[in-house]
């Protein structure tokens, strides 16, 4: 059964079980491997994408729920906020292994959209769902502050 998906500004026909989590549709069917699997149970945030602008854990979001919605992945994240965050991530050399960082960035984009000048408590709330085993938390926090200043 084909489902029509709208991802990063393009339409795709996907032939998959409508219960399939969006994560596996993106990775296995569309080849968008920037979105990562880390737990499958909404505990790590590695799979974070935006659905109609809000952050979602794609590992627990069935395909049928996003039919007709606009999905944005790390590959398609653009705009001033996303680019300011990327620049800060590079400037402060945030990533170590990098595996969690797509999810971190997608959560950070959503945070800065909702709260343009977050304080530390806002960052705790916005980023608590994203685990990093390399423990880059200190730099993530600093990079979000830096990006927020840069966006103005």
């Amino acid at each position: 059964m084909a489902t029509t998906l709208y991802v990063n500004g393009a339409h795709h026909q996907v032939d998959a079980d409508p219960e399939t989590p969006l994560l596996w549709v993106l990775r296995d069917h569309l080849g968008l491997t920037g979105t990562k699997y880390g737990c499958g149970v909404a505990q790590c945030g590695a799979c974070t994408v935006h659905v109609d602008g809000s952050p979602r854990r794609s590992c627990v979001t069935p395909l049928r729920r996003v039919e007709g919605a606009a999905v944005t992945t790390i590959e398609g994240a653009e705009g001033r906020i996303a680019e300011a965050l990327r620049a800060a991530w590079i400037d402060l050399q945030v990533p170590q292994c990098g595996f969690c960082q797509a999810g971190q960035l997608m959560s950070a984009v959503a945070l800065l959209k909702a709260v343009p000048k977050p304080d530390d408590a806002d960052i705790d709330r916005g980023m608590n769902g994203n685990l990093c085993r390399c423990a880059t938390y200190t730099r993530i926090r600093a990079a979000i502050h830096q990006a927020a200043r840069a966006v103005k």
């Binding site: 491997t33 990562k36 699997y37 790390i74 590959e75 590079i90 050399q93 990533p95 990098g98 797509a102």
Partner: peptide
């Protein structure tokens, strides 16, 4: 600065699970 980071922040690069 790391040579891999600019790729990482765009969701690029290939980890074990990303091979197709």
């Amino acid at each position: 600065a790391s040579v891999t980071v600019p790729t990482v922040v765009r969701g690029g690069g290939s980890y074990g699970a990303d091979v197709r």
